[in-house]
């Protein structure tokens, strides 16, 4: 029988940490780091769930994360969901082509997704947004955010593994789960 309580605890822990991290990104980071671009803290959660869970669970988490992100930005909810769903597809495709266990691989995947955030966001905005297209790419912010998020993914991997152990969730296997 499936352990629903454990699964709920697992979802809850990850989601709570996503809220705490994302609110930290928009509130405390600008206060203490000034204009240094903040890492995108929701991306490690999204990537972790898509690397080490079934595609269905990963997709549900991407929808839940979109609901969390929408109140913190001017980007419409539908557009954020589009972006996160594309990331789910990218992570699954990446995992299919190349998989290695461990924090380095996880951190690399997070880096890839963070790097893709800006072009994917522009592409989606270009296709869906009927508002004037005056968004500008901030290259420094883009690269710096990618680097910081990649680095932040390393300690977060350990924390996420701890969450899994705490809620007795089956830990990631060497080959990953079948897609």
């Amino acid at each position: 029988m499936r352990d629903y309580r454990g699964a709920f605890k697992n979802y809850f822990l990850f989601y709570l940490s996503a809220i705490a991290l994302t609110c930290f990104q928009v509130s405390l980071w600008p206060k203490y780091a000034g204009n240094i671009p903040a890492p995108h803290f929701w991306i490690p959660v999204l990537t972790y769930w898509n690397l080490y869970r079934s595609p269905k669970e990963g997709l549900i988490m991407s929808y839940l994360l979109s609901l969390l992100l929408a109140p913190l930005t001017v980007i419409p909810l539908g557009m954020i969901m589009f972006i996160n769903t594309i990331f789910v597809i990218v992570v699954l495709a990446f995992k299919n082509r190349f998989y290695q266990p461990g924090p380095i691989y996880f951190s690399m995947s997070v880096g890839l997704i963070t790097f893709l955030f800006v072009p994917v966001r522009y592409m989606i905005s270009f296709v869906l947004d009927n508002a004037h297209f005056t968004l500008q790419i901030h290259f420094f912010d883009w690269i710096f955010t990618t680097l910081l998020t990649t680095l932040a993914a390393l300690p977060l991997y350990t924390i996420f593994m701890f969450f899994d152990a705490l809620t007795q969730k089956e830990l990631p296997t060497e080959s990953g789960r079948p897609i």
Partner: peptide, 13 residues
């Protein structure tokens, strides 16, 4: 008490 999630956008909370 907060800024936009994405650096390309300018909203504050």
């Amino acid at each position: 008490i907060g800024k936009d999630l994405v650096p390309e956008h300018n909203t504050v909370t």
